[in-house]
Structures are given as structure tokens and as C-alpha cells.
Amino acid sequence: MFGTGILKGLGVTLKHFVGSYVDDIRWLGRRYFNDEALKVRQGPKGTGVFTVQYPEEKLPVPEEFRFIPFLVYDEGAEGQREIRCTSCGICAKVCPPQCIWIERSNDPQSGRPIPTPKEFFIDIDICMNCGLCSEYCPFDAIKMDHDYELASFHRHAEHIFNMDRLLQPASYYASIRPTNYAREEAARAEKEAAKAARKHEA
């Protein structure tokens, strides 16, 4: 009979429609603004309304999520910043849109380059968030951030990030990427241990 296909199809939408209320009842008012519920709602077992109420409700980002890079510094014993970057320039060389600018500093006495960069710029209007800089950095000095809310009113004044704007403590890095941080620290500790063992033998 003509029209049965449409009616069957409407049955599917009706099921979805009713299902959204059933899901609301199932959570008994704890469906929204509840991280536990959000995980289920957005997972393979999710039913009912799929959308979230941004910005009141935000989707958690996975650890690997990448947005505009930042520079990592370790906090020294007296609270001084020990910048990991050695201005080797690999990130500037691998950057596909070429948005990283590094000014290497020279020792005022000898004129020889010293590792810590004098300045470090990222033009975030050009950055394409590909993550290659952090992937190929041999010193774990540049990492991708999780903060994606960067809108500003002044494009020309605020969209070239300098070193001051880019620097973040290692503790921040550890907080957004715990497993990566733990893995890198373990690798570093292992390397140091091997180095110490070699020294000991010698």
C-alpha cells in the first residue's frame, strides 16, 4: 500500500522522540550537568538526546586532543623557570604553515649561542594545530594545549603569542596529559640511570 514506507519511517522518529523522554526519566533529573551521565550519553551506549548544552555543559577532551602549542618549563628549587627549549629549531623546521619563529640568544661575552631562546613566537592565526612540533621535539619542550577557547577582540594585537604567553609549568602539562607525562618522565629517568651507570663503570 502506498504510504506504508512513510508510516514505518515515522515510527522510527516516534521511537526516537519517546526514547528521549524515557532516557530523561531513567536518569531522574541527573541527566544534565553530571560528568558520569555525560560519559554514558556520549558513548556507544548513549540513548536519548545526544546534544550537550554548550557552554554550560562541555564535552571532556581526550588526552591526545591538540590545540595551539605551549612551551614547557620546569620549576626549579627556588621557583625559577627552567625552560626546556634549547632553540634547536626542529619545531620551526617541521611546522607546515611556518608559524613558529625562534630567536636564539647568544652569550654576550663569547658570542656563542646559548640554549635558552631569546624569543619564541607562534602566530596562532596561521597555526593549523597539526601537532608536528610537539611530536618531533626531542626535549619535550613544546606540547599541544587543551584550551580551545581563544577568541579575542584584537586580532593584530593578541594573536602572535610570545614566549611569555606560551610558557606553562610542567605541572600544567602533567595535569592535561598525565599518561604522556608519566611515560616521558619514565623514559628520562631511565636515560639518566643509564648515564649514571656508565659513569660509575668508568
Binding site: 632553540s87 620551526a92 623546521k93 607546515p96 611556518q98 636564539r104
Partner: peptide, 14 residues
């Protein structure tokens, strides 16, 4: 690429 003025004398410009 890579452009030579990005490193080590990276004086940023648009």
C-alpha cells in the same frame, strides 16, 4: 620550506 628566516634569527612579522 622550511623558510630560513624562522630560525635562528626569528624576527616575527606578518
Amino acid at each position: 620550506k622550511p623558510f630560513k628566516n624562522r630560525w635562528p634569527e626569528g624576527k616575527v612579522y606578518r
